[in-house]
Write a protein that binds this DNA or RNA. Structure first.
Lengths: 235, 235
DNA sequence: TTTTTTAACTTGTATTTACAAGTTGTTTTA
DNA sequence: TAAAACAACTTGTAAATACAAGTTAAAAAA
């Protein structure tokens, strides 16, 4: 029986409410005691949920004051984008699937070390291109191990977050990870995909994301066009 | 009376022990109950300390098993460097002070918004250049508000972390922050400082770090030579 | 009216207790 | 001997309770 802890349920609910705008930016969340009463929990449980929101950068707590809803930033996966031009809202985001999920063997000389389980099961491969205000900014190549993912090759990924699909359909959650960042000169193919002017550098990211499923890691290579936008992160 | 909470004391102690190698990489920390007994605390308090270590990526907890000490990575400030060549140990790290701390007025058109307190007090400015294996890789420009920092302009920063000095001498701790990352073409002066070949891109980072002192934020601009190394991060 | 005090909130820290659930080595049983 | 059951650990979740400390606005005093 997959029992979801109470603090997790409250966390998900509050998170959803914040994203949906139920609680406005800059306003206060209900106090801890109010949340206790509303959801029949004790303060330690409520605080556990709020701690997770703080960690995510969704809220900011002030002793004596309350929990303040922070300015929501535009997320792409675990990263965020801050635009140089006006506001970057979700409505300006488009995703093209350059390569629908297919089952392949792992590439030779893969940048990360794989576990035996991952090696055996083969990998699911996909490529996406993301646009902000009609400009391609984000090209990502993903390798996932082919476990826990029935019918993944049939799913539509258009305008949906990979993480959202993994979370809702496969109960896979990203816990954390590591990444390597570089500035590199774009080669011909990247130049073409991201519609770069020649000589324009790109941000190159390699990441390994760990999940709640043992031995299930997500490996991504990202090329980011930073001419008009920047990668934005809280920590 | 500045009272330091118990969980914070335990956190600092364990962190120090891990850094100093008292607990080896891959080995288990004493169990929660053992820590309770050793330091006269209750489990929630001990767990609070361990949670912070997990957040820092210092340890990894496994239910039924224990708290595993993670591989320690080479940190520069809050970031880390992973070398393409062999190991990047602290012994290969050198710091040059290009501009000793001086008191200046804040630059006009500063990239970040300043609080009134910060504006009034002026700023401490310094520039550093860091080498890995004799190659300049890391050029950083720092602006701190001129508060809480007596005699800062007299201190030696050679081969010392700015964060370490702030923490040990001024009780200022970095809590978190935000950063913007870009890949840019290096201009003439950056090219010269980082000894770049012409056309070589650099990673450009702008960050604002918040601290435990109200209204005291650290503002840094970093240029990173990613030809042979990469910025490495856990999250 | 203006200032000070107070009371009623808020989050922060900490103890105590209990049981669930995952891991591992030992003992028992087939 | 080999498999199954058990015991003794580990961390995970959760309740109930208490007091400290920061914030705010109302009440009281100047």
């Amino acid at each position: 029986m997959e029992q979801i802890p109470q603090y997790r349920k409250l966390y998900e609910l509050l998170r959803k409410h914040i994203v949906d705008g139920v609680y406005e930016e800059g306003s206060l969340l209900p106090s801890e005691n109010e949340l206790c009463a509303s959801y029949q929990m004790t303060r330690p449980t409520v605080r556990h949920a709020l701690d997770s929101l703080v960690k995510d950068g969704m809220i900011l707590k002030k002793q004596g004051k309350g929990s303040i809803v922070r300015k929501q930033i535009q997320n792409i996966g675990i990263l965020s984008i801050s635009g140089t031009a006006s506001a970057v809202g979700v409505r300006y985001l488009k995703t093209d699937i350059l390569q629908k999920p297919v089952i392949k063997t792992w590439p030779e000389n893969f940048s990360f070390e794989l576990t035996d389980l991952e090696k055996e099961s083969g990998c699911v491969y996909m490529e996406r291109l993301r646009y902000v205000e009609e400009v391609p900014v984000f090209y990502d190549i993903n390798h996932l191990p082919n476990i826990y993912l029935p019918r993944i090759t049939n799913r539509s990924f258009e305008n949906k977050s990979l993480f959202e699909i993994l979370r809702k359909n496969y109960q896979i959650e990203v816990l954390g990870g590591e990444q390597k960042l570089k500035a590199i000169k774009a080669d011909k193919s990247i130049q073409k995909i991201l519609q770069l002017r020649s000589g324009q550098p790109v941000l190159h990211i390699e990441r390994k994301l760990t999940t709640n499923k043992e031995g299930f890691n997500i490996y991504s290579t990202i090329y980011f066009n930073s001419e008009k936008h920047a990668i934005f992160g809280n920590f």
